[in-house]
Design a binder for these strands. Structure first.
Length: 225
DNA sequence: ATATGATCATGC
DNA sequence: GCATGATCATAT
């Protein structure tokens, strides 16, 4: 596959992303010389990786933004024909230890969501992967209200973790943010502390944005233009 | 095991 | 129907 140079500034990135609007994933992949899988069962991150590639994001799984010089994170967002998100959005792994001194302002979650290029893709499961269409990408930062909601949910979930109640947390906790398993399978374990302060092994968890939140982002950016 | 990229699929 | 819990691939 051909090399795509990273964008020089935010506007170039946005222009590049919006040039994908209306194109099918098959068209985009063909230009990039990438094979389209029949389904995503074994390549769940394929769409995100394709978009990273064609937009010139830095490769690999380094713990930094997709566009380091711009401080921008790329997120693909599967939506239905009505613009409703079909999945929650994974943000980052939730630390279960070492939370002493961590506050919202210096949290990994806040940092991750500081500036995001959202690329919605009409991705209903009945549509073959190659025929799914990119909608209108947009760049977003949380406004005051959104940040307050994120901070509140993050604090609630983090408090429970600190109190050793991680295994009592379900996907129902949080209004717009949730904590759910994030692992290859249920045998994967990571260290946490129980309510007595004793270490034990548990399933790794990740922070996910609920669809009610991402749906609002979509609507903001459909209404205003 | 942890980071990246997420969606699958079953229970409700 | 849809959200929660479970899972898949790859790189380090």
């Amino acid at each position: 596959m051909a090399l795509t140079l990273p964008p020089n500034d935010e506007q170039e990135l946005l222009t590049r992303a919006q040039a994908l609007s209306g194109l099918t994933l098959g068209e985009i992949a063909r230009k990039a010389g990438i094979q389209v899988p029949k389904n995503l069962n074994k390549e769940k991150g394929w769409i995100g990786l394709l978009l990273e590639h064609v937009l010139g994001a830095s490769a690999g799984s380094k713990p930094e933004p997709d566009f380091p010089s711009l401080g921008i994170e790329l997120k693909s967002l599967p939506i239905n024909y009505s613009g409703k998100p079909l999945e929650t959005t994974f943000v980052c792994v939730a630390p279960l230890v070492g939370l002493t001194g961590v506050i919202w302002e210096n949290s990994h979650l806040k940092n991750k969501l500081a500036r995001v290029l959202w690329v919605p893709v009409i991705s209903e499961r009945e549509i073959p992967i190659a025929e799914r269409i990119v909608a209108t990408p947009f760049i977003w930062s949380p406004n005051i209200e959104e940040e307050q909601q994120l901070a509140q949910d993050w604090q609630e979930l983090t408090d429970m973790i600190v109190l050793g109640k991680v295994e009592q947390i379900t996907g129902k906790h949080g209004d717009i943010l949730q904590l759910r398993p994030k692992a290859a399978n249920s045998s994967v374990k990571t260290k946490a502390f129980n309510h007595k302060g004793e270490p034990f092994l548990t399933l790794p968890r990740g922070f996910y944005l609920k669809t009610v939140f991402t749906q609002r982002l979509i609507h903001q950016h459909l209404r205003v233009e």
